[in-house]
Write a protein that binds this DNA or RNA. Sequence first.
DNA 1: GGCAGGATCATACCTAGGTTTGGGACCGCG
DNA 2: CGCGGTCCCAAACCTAGGTATGATCCTGCC
Lengths: 223, 223
Amino acid sequence: MSGRPASPHTLASAEEPVVFVVDDDASVRDALSNLFRSVGLRVEVFGSAHEFLQSKLPNVASCLILDIRLPRLSGLDFQAELAKADIRIPIIFMTGHGDIPMTVRAMKAGAVDFLTKPFRDQDMLDAVTTAIERDRVSRDEARVLSDLHARFATLTPREREVMGLVTAGLMNKQIAAEIGIAEITVKIHRGHIMRKMAAKSLPDLVRMAEMLGIGPASGRPQT
Amino acid sequence: MSGRPASPHTLASAEEPVVFVVDDDASVRDALSNLFRSVGLRVEVFGSAHEFLQSKLPNVASCLILDIRLPRLSGLDFQAELAKADIRIPIIFMTGHGDIPMTVRAMKAGAVDFLTKPFRDQDMLDAVTTAIERDRVSRDEARVLSDLHARFATLTPREREVMGLVTAGLMNKQIAAEIGIAEITVKIHRGHIMRKMAAKSLPDLVRMAEMLGIGPASGRPQT
DNA sequence: GGCAGGATCATACCTAGGTTTGGGACCGCG
DNA sequence: CGCGGTCCCAAACCTAGGTATGATCCTGCC
């Protein structure tokens, strides 16, 4: 217990966020880089979507500043690509001459903001603050859910079935009748479930089941 | 209550949805009215935001088509007014000459779509379908939550406190120690809670507490 | 004052949940 | 073929949850 900066299992919120900038215009990159650095934000710039994809994304809260009009791949298409590749990062669009349908499409797809050039520095900074915070929250949620999935994966098929029935509110004897085994066996499964899932109480387990989307009908819902 | 035609709790989804159109241009109102009626949708048109507000909103899934440029109150301001008055209805904006900041503001505030005139009929119909469906889901959720709140309101302060601790996973004896009463009294409160909330099981009660956003009120994180 | 409702508690009794100990049976895999 | 994992079960034993009966105390209210 010394002055260690962070534990191995650190919250995304505990580390330094990063702003990624993708724009083919070097002067824009420089300007944004200076802007963000002036308020103490880490920045990484890229000249193309391709470059950005090749870089290794750090596991910290981040956001992406994207020009809608990129050389080989438009900002909107890039947004769609990221979504398809399951890379979830809040996006802030910039545009010199965008139109309304573009804007609608981007916002519907979850963009944080859509700024028209020239924009005020403060508007960009506000958007980035919102985006980083959104990513921080979503990363924290994802981490919790991932831990949960890992524990759930250690359950045997039978234990998963029993977990569904337990969290649905059935009594041990009802569960036993439902799946055709003895009540004592249900109790044993139940004990295993509580230990493997690290649930401190039944309400705890119920909340885990909710997060995992577990119902009594779940035969093998493993994604 | 005498004149109750339908069953006491009807799903919003079970009734005929309505499309509201607010536009100061009569020809636009007529055109949209015809369009929606041609696909079998109920329509009600208004010449101003004021007129719309004066009308009694039926309790069915609905959506609102709004021109961004209304005479006395802009579409955006009207959207804000509705939000402030806690009138939640999905909004689809139309505009002849809108700009991107307007679009962004509308979409951030939750607009379903933002169509530029002239738009294709199909685009409008798609937007309406999405909006109606969104409203249907949100009404169903609101109805369930409202029932829950009504039952929760019948709990005494003490019962609410105990409910928070029970659903947090504390044992009866822990709850008793926590609030300084006997375990038997906790059990009695607990029985009252289950009956008043109409919970068929503890998991049931836990899910209700989740929906109501109930924690161990006295700020006791048990994670 | 008296009444209603909330909150408290005791005793008694019953059911539900949970662990331990000690098995038996099946199956895939090295 | 034996090892490990899964699934099954029983007896014994303990704790936790839940209800009923009956009671006391207080407070707000007509």
